[in-house]
Computed example of a mutant assay.
Amino acid sequence: MLSNDAGFDQIYILCGYTDLRKGIDGLSALVEQKFNLNPFQNVLFLFCGRRTDRIKGLVWQGDGFLMMYKRLENGNYQWPRNEESARNISIQEFRWLTEGLTIDPKKKVKKSSPKRSV
Rank of each mutant, 00 (worst) to 15 (best):
F45K: 02
N38W: 09
N38P: 13
L72F: 04
G75I: 05
P105V: 04
T18A: 07
N82C: 10
K70R: 14
G75Q: 04
T98R: 14
I11D: 04
C48S: 04
S3H: 15
K22H: 15
K22A: 03
L66T: 12
R51H: 15
F8D: 02
S85Y: 09
I103P: 00
R50I: 14
N38A: 12
G57H: 06
L101G: 00
N74R: 09
L66K: 12
N88W: 11
E93I: 02
G64R: 15
I13A: 05
G64Q: 06
S113F: 11
K107H: 12
C15I: 06
Q33I: 12
N82R: 15
G62P: 04
W96I: 00
G7A: 10
S28K: 12
G62L: 07
I11R: 03
I89Y: 08
T52H: 13
N36S: 15
C15Q: 08
L58E: 00
K34D: 10
A29E: 09
L72H: 04
R54D: 03
R71I: 05
W79R: 00
G49Q: 05
M68H: 10
D25F: 14
I24H: 05
Q41E: 06
D25H: 10
E73V: 07
Y17D: 13
Q10I: 10
Q10N: 13
E73S: 08
Q92A: 14
M67E: 06
E83T: 10
N4Q: 13
L14E: 02
R51G: 15
F47D: 00
Y17L: 15
D9R: 09
F47E: 01
L97A: 01
D53P: 02
K34P: 01
L44H: 03
D53Y: 13
I13M: 04
